[in-house]
């Protein structure tokens, strides 16, 4: 497994070239171009604000709703993007895979790099909101750790899906539903306490098997102050397990890709 990672590092230039290609192509022939990177996080946080703050009025333990929601949404959107993109990365590049040899791992990894644009734009927005509501603190730096945790977890799931999609295209159909389902089980628009209030307390750990639960909770606990649930560590561990197992499966399937796709 480490041999392959080494090869990817040697081929980092290819990975960056793929990332640059995907970034350019993503906004090709759109009217407002790169401005979409800014509009997307603003629009989605506006939706959450209207639905969960104005209509449902979810409690946020005294934290202003906009920075609260945005802190979760930035990470969730990145998670969602990396999974969706890396899951389809092998199938979308089958022509190339059948005709050119290159480390396939560069494909999902380059997607994770391209996807970074939006969370970084979101990060600047978040800082602006924190300053506005006067809750800004040094804890904001924890964002980098949360983002790395998100990338690893999302790649883990993405690698699993990409590897399975080679044989079972059904994965591509199932994935959107699964992601939507997980979205509601993740404390993005509301707090984890609200979710754990619904289920018996001895089952709380199930929520934290979802890597995003612990990642978002830890970020918020450090950003806004609050209890640090020890189950958070389990979320990070789950992300790591997904990544390592996903990588192993991906590399096993990599050998057969050209014969199957």
């Amino acid at each position: 497994m480490w041999e392959n990672l080494k090869e990817v590092i040697e081929q980092r230039q290819l990975m960056l070239t793929f990332a640059a290609r995907d970034y350019k192509v993503r906004y090709a022939q759109t009217f407002i171009g790169y401005w979409w990177s800014l509009i997307q996080p603003i629009a989605s946080v506006a939706v959450l604000f209207v639905v969960f703050q104005k209509l449902v009025k979810v409690p946020t333990e005294g934290v202003p709703y906009l920075p609260f929601a945005l802190s979760g949404l930035i990470l969730w959107n990145y998670f969602n993007y990396v999974i969706t993109q890396s899951a389809a990365s092998l199938i979308n590049n089958q022509g190339m895979i059948r005709k050119i040899y290159f480390p396939k791992l560069t494909l999902p990894l380059s997607r994770a790099i391209v996807g970074l644009v939006e969370p970084l734009v979101g990060f600047v927005l978040l800082i602006a909101l924190l300053l506005y509501y006067e809750v800004f603190g040094i804890g904001i730096l924890f964002f980098l750790i949360a983002l790395a945790g998100t990338a690893i977890s999302a790649l883990g799931i993405g690698l699993w899906t990409a590897a399975l999609s080679i044989r079972y295209r059904d994965m591509q159909q199932i994935l959107p539903f699964v992601l939507q389902f997980i979205f509601f089980l993740t404390p993005v628009a509301y707090s984890a306490d609200l979710l754990s209030g619904i289920i018996p307390s001895q089952w709380d750990f199930v929520l934290y098997l979802n890597p995003m639960t612990g990642i978002i909770e830890s970020f918020r606990a450090i950003l806004f102050g609050g209890d640090f649930n020890p189950l958070i560590l389990m979320s990070y561990a789950a992300g790591l397990v997904l990544f390592v197992s996903g990588l192993a499966l991906f590399q096993k399937m990599e050998m057969k890709i050209a014969d199957i796709v």
Binding site: T17, F18, R21, K24, V25, M96, K99
Partner: peptide, 15 residues
């Protein structure tokens, strides 16, 4: 193979 239709000739040479 590996040429991307949306990219320019210059960009495709590097890709």
């Amino acid at each position: 193979t590996g040429f991307h239709p949306e990219l320019s000739g210059r960009e495709n040479i590097f890709l």
